[in-house]
């Protein structure tokens, strides 16, 4: 299971991006995207912005769940009050092939695990928690008097916090 997370500003401008892999079921937290897929990920993610704009007026929730699917890539969206989009692309790797040596014992369970089934309730819950934690840190970032809306987030602390949230929930 590999993830590509991006924060998109109100002008559809990217503010932050981060790639990581699952840390559950013995995953090592490394993304397993091919070099080609990494370029494609950005396109897939940004193409789902159209759908975000449709969905955002049908629900007043912050977390809009999985909104888009492109072949084996699922996109979850979280929308802040200030219309900044948090988009998470998840790409399940079939049959837990990416699981490390310690992951073999859990293979029987993996059909219900977060990694294998991106639309299950457990996955939605995990992504929601992840997004919630990122949102908190994003608001803290915006509280800096030197930060203006739609500025790129360069803070290394922020990046570390997103990575920690990824390890914790995904």
């Amino acid at each position: 299971m590999s993830y590509y997370f991006a924060i998109i500003g109100t002008q559809d401008n990217p503010l932050f991006e981060y790639e990581f892999g699952t840390s559950k079921q013995g995953g090592d937290g490394q993304p397993r995207f091919s070099e080609q897929a990494r370029h494609l990920n950005q396109f897939i993610l940004h193409s789902s912005l159209d759908i975000v704009e449709e969905v955002q007026w049908t629900s007043n929730q912050l977390y809009l769940k999985a909104i888009d699917k492109f072949f084996n890539n699922y996109i979850s969206c979280f929308l802040t009050a200030g219309n900044t989009k948090f988009l998470l692309l998840h790409q399940p790797t079939g049959g837990g092939a990416a699981a490390g040596p310690g992951g073999n014992s859990s293979n029987t369970r993996s059909s219900t695990s977060i990694g294998a089934n991106p639309t299950s309730a457990a996955t939605e819950e995990a992504v929601k928690n992840f997004m919630g934690e990122v949102y908190e840190n994003y608001v803290k970032a915006t509280m800096s008097p030197f930060y203006k809306v739609n500025m790129e987030i360069r803070s290394l602390v922020f990046r570390a916090r997103v990575a920690a949230a990824g390890r914790k929930y995904l």
Partner: peptide, 19 residues
């Protein structure tokens, strides 16, 4: 612009809703 997000996140999680 900044207050909007700050006050929303301070709401209890159940009532957090975008206007």
């Amino acid at each position: 612009l900044k207050l909007l997000d700050l006050l929303l996140i301070r709401e209890p999680a159940r009532t957090q809703a975008r206007p």
